[in-house]
């Protein structure tokens, strides 16, 4: 039986051992053990389609999909929040009109998913999936409720800090990013092998949104800001169509 103390010890031993991206080989996250590639990634210069990203447009998405609180007939339970931020590439250019997708647990920490059977209530008024396109300045905005922390079976008494899963595209294929956004000051950060798989503390902090009162709306929602920098593009501006 693996305890939180065991996992904490393993996390501790690997602190600072990786770079700014998560370690692929990260045994405290038990599901990774048979799934991480053992060979180094092979570096290659992108060519052809790799220099471009797929295009999404207004016809792919309804504006209402960015509001996770209006997908059912009633109001979901929980703390209503707005999450907004700007997506830029590694050269500081906004990623315009590009797809952002999110999914999350409800306020009780339960996912609308067959595989989540832990005994916290489902909310008939909250599914927990949304998508939008960034605007002309690279800004995305979602309306949702704050997800709850939830238990998982990595070890005994394992709990994930509250998070929203994010999926992002850049302007070229190589910038594809799937990650998780966290909330400031979560007491579970130190104990979570997924958050800690990014072993560089500065890089890890980039996953934490900031409370922003200028995003908060009176008598409605608390506001969080989370800006996202993707990696560098390989296409020169001349090649932009």
């Amino acid at each position: 039986m693996t305890t939180q103390a065991d996992i904490y010890r393993e996390i501790d031993e690997l602190r600072g051992s990786g770079g700014p991206q998560p370690r692929r080989d990260y045994p405290p996250y038990r599901s990774s053990v048979l799934r991480y590639p053992t060979r180094d990634l092979h570096q290659v210069d992108p060519e052809g389609v790799e220099l471009w990203a797929p295009c999404f447009g207004a016809a792919d998405i309804d504006d209402a999909e960015a509001d996770l609180t209006i997908q059912r007939s009633g109001e979901p339970l929980g703390e209503r929040i707005i999450v907004t931020g700007r997506v830029t590439d590694g050269d500081g250019r906004p990623v315009r009109h590009q797809l952002v997708e999110i999914w999350q647990a409800n306020a009780s920490g339960r996912y609308w998913h067959q595989r989540d059977q832990h005994p916290a209530p489902l909310d008939p008024n909250f599914i927990g999936a949304g998508r939008c396109l960034t605007d002309g300045d690279g800004v995305y905005t979602f309306r949702t409720v704050k997800p709850g922390a939830y238990p998982w079976r990595n070890h005994v008494n394992a709990w994930r800090p509250a998070h929203i899963h994010f999926s992002l595209f850049g302007t070229d294929f190589t910038q594809r990013l799937v990650t998780q956004m966290y909330f400031p000051g979560d007491p579970l950060f130190d104990l979570d092998p997924i958050y800690q798989s990014v072993t560089d503390p500065k890089a890890r902090e980039l996953l934490v949104a900031a409370y922003d009162h200028s995003v908060t709306t009176p008598e409605r929602s608390l506001g969080y800001r989370w800006d996202i920098v993707l990696s560098g593009t390989h296409r020169t501006p001349l090649e932009e169509s």
């Binding site: 999914w103 927990g128 949304g130 899963h165 999926s167 997924i194 990014v198 980039l206 996953l207």
Partner: peptide
């Protein structure tokens, strides 16, 4: 380097991605 780190897609991605 301030590039956002990746994180696992997790077990519940069917809710948001397919």
């Amino acid at each position: 380097m301030s590039y956002a780190p990746g994180q696992t897609v997790g077990p519940f991605f069917h809710l948001g991605l397919p």
